[in-house]
Amino acid sequence: MWASTHNDTLRAKMSSVVDVLYDCQKKMGTGYLSAFPSEFFDRAEALTTVWAPYYTIHKIMQGLLDQYTVAGNSKALEMVVEMANYFSDRVKNVIQKYSIERHWASLNEETGGMNDVLYQLYTITDDLKHLTLAHLFDKPCFLGLLAVQADSISGFHSNTHIPVVVGAQMRYEVTGDVIYKQIATSFMDMINSSHSYATGGTSAGEFWSDPKRLAATLSAENAESCTTYNMLKGFPQLIQMDKGNSICGLL
């Protein structure tokens, strides 16, 4: 809203939020920043019950990064770098202590667009640590299916995986790795041809069902707003990829 209006009151409010969060992060002293304790990630890494802590972390990191890229708040960039470094150390520890498979298994909850925001951050910091961490949030068990253009997404949780594809699009934009352009294109083709309702939305109860057999899934839980939001992030990015233009920093 501020980017559209340049309203001074809005700028003061959003800057105030960054300032308060900055004080919280500094008081915790580790780079971690969230309203829930870091122990939630202990549970995720141990594969015990906890609901989607990375989903929230992505939202905080993306908001802070937007404060820098859109509004020029350098304090917000400092904060998101600290968060990325904290989670880089966490993920590295899981892989070293257990295995890469344990890390992949810990992502079988909603992780939001962690890969997306980390690729964006890498374009600013040029820190290979951030690029590596972004790669580690590219979910291979899902993206691999799309790479071979297999319409095998039935049964997958849509709002977990749409942001991962948006991140794959960003990987192509940042690295030029053409397989990730193919992944994004295949996914959009599958959704448009086989998993979309007349409204343009997708999934029932946030799960994809059999392709082109959607009538039986019609209910009050079709096309939940979070899936629509994430699909809307994907479409303009795909158009820009086809044009060959980079859109880093615009989402």
Rank of each mutant, 00 (worst) to 15 (best):
T9I: 11
A12N: 12
S15N: 15
S15H: 14
V18M: 03
L21T: 14
C24M: 13
M28T: 13
P53E: 00
I57V: 14
M61F: 01
Q62T: 07
G63I: 03
G63Q: 04
L64S: 05
T69E: 11
G72K: 08
G72D: 09
N85D: 15
D89Y: 11
R90N: 03
V91T: 02
S99M: 03
I100L: 14
S106H: 00
T111A: 13
G112W: 06
G112T: 07
M114A: 05
D116C: 04
L121D: 00
T125I: 07
L128F: 08
K129I: 11
H130W: 02
L131A: 01
K139V: 10
C141Q: 10
F142R: 00
S154I: 13
S154N: 15
S158A: 15
N159I: 04
Q169L: 12
M170E: 14
V174L: 02
V174R: 03
I179N: 05
I179T: 06
S193V: 12
G201F: 04
G201Y: 02
T202N: 15
S203I: 01
S209H: 15
R213V: 13
L214F: 00
L214Y: 00
L214S: 00
L218C: 14
M231F: 14
P236Y: 03
D242V: 04
N245H: 12
S246N: 10
I247K: 08
